[in-house]
Nucleic acid binder design. Sequence first.
DNA 1: CTGTTAGCGCCTTCAG
DNA 2: CTGAAGGCGCTAACAG
Lengths: 366, 366
Amino acid sequence: MSDAPVTLSQVAREAGVSLATASRAINGSATRSVREDLRERVLEAARRLAYSPDPSAQAMARGRTTALGLVVHDIADPYFSTIAAGVARAAERAGLIVTLASTEHSSARELAFVELARRQRSRAIILAGGRLEPEGDAGVASGGGPDDGAPVPGALEAALNAFQEAGGGVALVGQPIGGLPVVEIANADGAADLARALHGLGYRRFAVLAGPDGHRTAADRTAGFTGALAELGSPVAPDDVLTCPFTRDGGYSAMGDLIKRADAGRLPELVFAVNDVMAVGAMAAVRDAGLSVPDDVAVAGFDDIHTLRDVSPGLTTVRIPLAEVGELATELALGRAERTRTTVRGEVVLRDSTPPRPPATPADDA
Amino acid sequence: MSDAPVTLSQVAREAGVSLATASRAINGSATRSVREDLRERVLEAARRLAYSPDPSAQAMARGRTTALGLVVHDIADPYFSTIAAGVARAAERAGLIVTLASTEHSSARELAFVELARRQRSRAIILAGGRLEPEGDAGVASGGGPDDGAPVPGALEAALNAFQEAGGGVALVGQPIGGLPVVEIANADGAADLARALHGLGYRRFAVLAGPDGHRTAADRTAGFTGALAELGSPVAPDDVLTCPFTRDGGYSAMGDLIKRADAGRLPELVFAVNDVMAVGAMAAVRDAGLSVPDDVAVAGFDDIHTLRDVSPGLTTVRIPLAEVGELATELALGRAERTRTTVRGEVVLRDSTPPRPPATPADDA
DNA sequence: CTGTTAGCGCCTTCAG
DNA sequence: CTGAAGGCGCTAACAG
């Protein structure tokens, strides 16, 4: 049963035609065409021999692979694995093989993978997940020097550009880099919607578990949330915006700090954690302190991670259709989308972690 | 800026040596060796030119890719994404690229990917996740799911064998196929341990949400659990072993049935769902019925999915080190493990969903 | 419309 | 120890 791989030339011989004809019959050459009966014969022979082309050889002859690179920070994170599921589905539809890279948050590895993809002549590459902002990136620095620091981010952009110039498709998920195609997530808008909804429920005093400094997604969500609240006349005090890691443990310990601090004062009415995983950590901290969500504090998150939909009490959040985001990014990377830039908007999902709150007594803010 | 990919011959020219020498210097030929100074020169030139080999070309010349295929049912499922994280890590250590296939539970697709891997001459392939048992094994095929036209039972095994004979490494995760290398998970033992622990806590009347008929993993967990209980003198009545899908919704609706049925009788003391995701669904059903876990029913699961560690009440479960399983499978597939078969044993984790239960009144079992 | 002929980039016998 | 030459499987100009 040892099948030496069937080659195209075997198929050609079996069908009694030349190698070239067999090739054209099988993958329909763009320029040449093949007589119907010959094509039939070739296809028939291929089927009989269970022929299937060698991707490496095709890649070499065509100068282009059939691979789609997907780069994520951590495939075990449900945020990324859901995006990956969308990418996998869309890639299969497009007849592409997806090669996965889980960088474990190392931007060096991220860069290495982009370069590998170029070298390997991948058809396209998708980068999911934000990178940290360059330090001290204060917006519009007048004049913009020819080389403004930030070695790593700049290198990534350069690598991506090189990849694109070499004919590869690129799509980013989450946040833009240069002018590259991107599926943006309306983080600020979603968080603002959430803030308004919560304000509408009667909440007035908020705290935010804001993720780490320099984390763009976290910053956008925080800004959207606090911005909307400020407009509504319930500004969040700077002290109530806590920096912490973007993880479950980050949420847990930041909430712990909040609670400890509250011993000397009082807890905010509601704590917004900038992602669901952090929110769940925060809820655990509340429980571990012997307090209750939502009786002592309400909690809200962001993303609507599917696996977390059944936590109790149900977590109020902003639903992002992550799998669709993955599919969209694939279309984009393959150049099959109309535009080169899409924004996916989230939808506020109110659950039991933030029940309506009867109007506070006006004197409450003493 | 348009870098035409750097080739080995450019490096050779730059270093002033022949192509062959450059090749030997860079990837250390097994038979020939290269003079130290020449090697240095080549490596230096390669670095200067930022050379990196073209995987397709190497694959063609060597007749073997540098790719590791990973086939899972659904990459969005935390069970699989955690395994994938382990595989990704181990693969990177081994200098391999992982190509991901998410079959969405289609065994036809699974088969297709194995064949693709062979054609593509992947270095190795890892199949995670159980396949359904061959029909007729279960006997009582009452109202099971409609079979989605599974291919010939032996087809997958044949494809895997062909892949292996063609020089590829194979590893399965979860359950064996033929004599192929496998990382087995001690499902029955883990479930038995869990049963004993729960019995030790004082529980006596159990029900099992057992997953679908023919699902081997589910069946093993169910058998381990009920077997241990029978030995302990608290057998589970067949009626209390409920067939249902292996999903959150499966757990939810089966638990709903149990509750509905209990209106006319009583609830079991503890419900064991054969995986955490189902258990969480079951807990949701309990809540939605206005009941409480653990006051009205205790609930236990299996896997210890990381994202679910903070559900409330904390879910008692059997911890399987999924990421390690992925790493192990990679070692196995690469032939780097001692043995060709490993069993990973889980560890019972008791949490608040199954508090100790005071000895029931003897008359309770009327 | 079909067949012949170069390579794609690299590895690996073979000579030198 | 090093260089030259052949070929992996396939595609894409070229003839015919």
